[in-house]
Design a protein around this nucleic acid. Structure first.
Lengths: 197, 197
DNA sequence: GTCTATAGGTAGATAGAC
DNA sequence: GTCTATCTACCTATAGAC
């Protein structure tokens, strides 16, 4: 059975598929989607290029799976962290910590692909990914609104959300693990830049 | 004569070259560098694909020219604006206004290509572009340091520079000209987020 | 499920006429 | 300077054996 689940409820992905998605994330990030050939992908998991098409109908389907997985995992992590936080201040902190730990750690490759390979996603696949992205940003908006209500941040939370996400996204371009700052320290520093004193 | 100037002193570029660079900027931004073929590039300026190679040795050389032009023009604009500003506060404002007007206006396509197509630049060409980028960021650093000295912004200006540039870069992803905010209003709003009150 | 073999298409770049 | 014609290489995806 050639499995072609929808984006929203990819169940327990069988391991071959998962292996491919993770290898693809790294290759797409390092070389770009277009420069990565199906032969590269096959090599990375020990398959011939033709065999990939048993698991995915097209190369683009792999790209979409990479992106969907990256943003979905991050959203889940954020939901858990928010649920565990016991104050508006703690929820606000969770935004920064989860985002940076995901982007600079666990889901780094997949999220970089999500940020930098939008142009390679077909019109047909784009709406599904936008839904996932919007779900993530809606979490941000909710937490920021609550924080604003409690006077923790400025009132213009929509612009604030956009500026903050931009700052955090950009960290992949300069942050180095072997530098002076740990990821959590960086999160706290950035948090400090926006909390109203 | 097949002209191959260096990045740093491309003189009065002949018009065919310039025309190509500008058309390429738009195509690379809209479709991505890899998906844009030399045939697309030729079409855009009314040439056969083979004729491009009289003006540029390779397709990559066009990409590099696009990026170099985008960042160089922005740097020049910023230099002029800083020179014209008469206070640390005015110079600080100039950073935001020039950056956003360039990124969302004049040099939009070229700068988006600069932000999103790094992976397609060969190792050989990368250092030259990094020099240009660093020159631009050095201007930022100088102005931010002076602003910090005058108590206008926080002291950690290196992190501040990175967060701010991230916020501004990200605006290309969501800002729409037909929205509520003009580019200069947006610049002022963002400025308001960092100026210490 | 994975392999081999290959179809069918298009890519970047070159050569030589004009 | 630009065109036409084309080379060579490589790409995604398919077909059918195992």
């Amino acid at each position: 059975m050639n499995t072609h689940e929808t984006l929203t409820h990819a169940p327990e992905e069988n391991s071959r598929r998962m292996e491919l998605i993770e290898a693809a994330a790294k290759l797409f990030r390092d070389q770009g989607y277009e420069r990565t050939t199906v032969r590269d992908l096959g090599n990375a998991v020990g398959l011939q290029s033709g065999s990939l098409f048993y698991h995915f109908r097209t190369k683009e389907e792999i790209l979409v799976a990479v992106m969907a997985r990256g943003i979905t995992r991050t959203t889940e992590q954020l939901e858990r962290a928010i649920a565990a936080a016991d104050s508006p201040r703690a929820k606000l902190a969770a935004l920064f910590h989860v985002h940076l730990n995901s982007l600079l750690g666990d889901n780094q490759a997949a999220l970089e692909v999500m940020l930098y390979e939008w142009r390679s996603v077909s019109d047909a696949a784009r709406p599904g990914l936008i839904v996932l992205r919007d779900r993530y940003e809606a979490l941000w908006q909710t937490v920021l609104d609550e924080a604003a209500t409690h006077g923790l941040v400025r009132q213009d939370t929509r612009l604030l959300r956009r500026t903050l996400l931009g700052s955090l996204h950009w960290s992949v371009q300069w942050y180095r693990k072997d530098g002076q700052l740990s990821v959590d320290e960086l999160a706290d520093h950035m948090l400090g830049l926006v909390v109203v004193s």
